[in-house]
Nucleic acid binder design. Structure first.
Lengths: 137, 137
DNA sequence: GTGTTTGCAAAGTGTTTGCAATTTA
DNA sequence: TAAATTGCAAACACTTTGCAAACAC
């Protein structure tokens, strides 16, 4: 378990005030393994742990953490936004049936040819989503 | 310009009745080059051409055409759904600043290693989105 | 005629915003 | 105490739905 001060510093370094809510959410997000959350799922978790945080604050915090580079936003479903605590170079499996998202380590996948960006444009990211469904039979 | 009967057959083959609205939308979608549309953009186009189609019908039609395999849905933005008339194997550039989407021909890009699907799952698709922004030079 | 499709307006979903009250520094 | 942050409720954007009228076959 990471020390309390770790989250405190992390938030301060992001230029944000370490409020009770931000600390609570940081603890949920960055304590263990890499995670993929939606605003709803994180809010639900916080409630389950008796942390009092409003859904609006969860949204704000997720966006602030994303701007600060602590999280990465992943677009896989038009219905909801996902945030990934792993900000490194990697791609995703998306389980369409239950909305789950898991990492694909970068060495499991390789892109040998990347197209040049169109005239006057710069590539911001190359996002790969491998959509999977339950095998029938 | 494709003959009228082409769209008629296309819709019939999809198991749908060739109504005035579906024919009009098929004409907009499948007349020229491959296209990327949103419900709003297609509805706007229909209006501009004095075709009377409600937005609800545009949504319904896009989904019906997608189920029928005439269109492919592309997820690049949590805010809106895009539909692509090119149902073949290819990937996309997404211009974040203006919401534009363009095809990347399959030979401009190559994926040499694709991970195995997790236990019990089957890969449905591998979607690559290259996000580009204006070069700040 | 019968079943399908349309269009409207209402409802739904996930997300953002305005603002007074609260908290942080 | 000044500035940032929170939480609520209202507003939002996009999408879906219920249902009577219109249409296709």
């Amino acid at each position: 378990m990471r020390p309390y001060s770790h989250f405190l510093d992390q938030i301060r370094l992001a230029g944000l005030r370490p409020t009770r809510q931000r600390l609570a959410l940081a603890k949920l997000l960055f304590s263990g393994e890499n995670r993929h959350v939606t605003a709803e799922s994180l809010h639900g978790e916080a409630q389950a742990e008796k942390m009092r945080v409003s859904l609006a604050t969860v949204y704000n915090t997720l966006h602030q953490f994303t701007s600060a580079g602590l999280l990465r936003e992943i677009v896989v479903d038009a219905q909801r936004s996902y945030f990934d605590t792993n900000t490194g170079d990697h791609h995703h499996f998306y389980f369409e049936e239950n909305g789950m998202l898991t990492d694909i380590s970068d060495d499991m996948m390789s892109l040998t040819k990347v197209p040049e960006a169109p005239e006057g444009m710069a590539i911001k990211s190359v996002d790969i989503v491998v959509r999977v469904v339950e095998k029938t039979q």
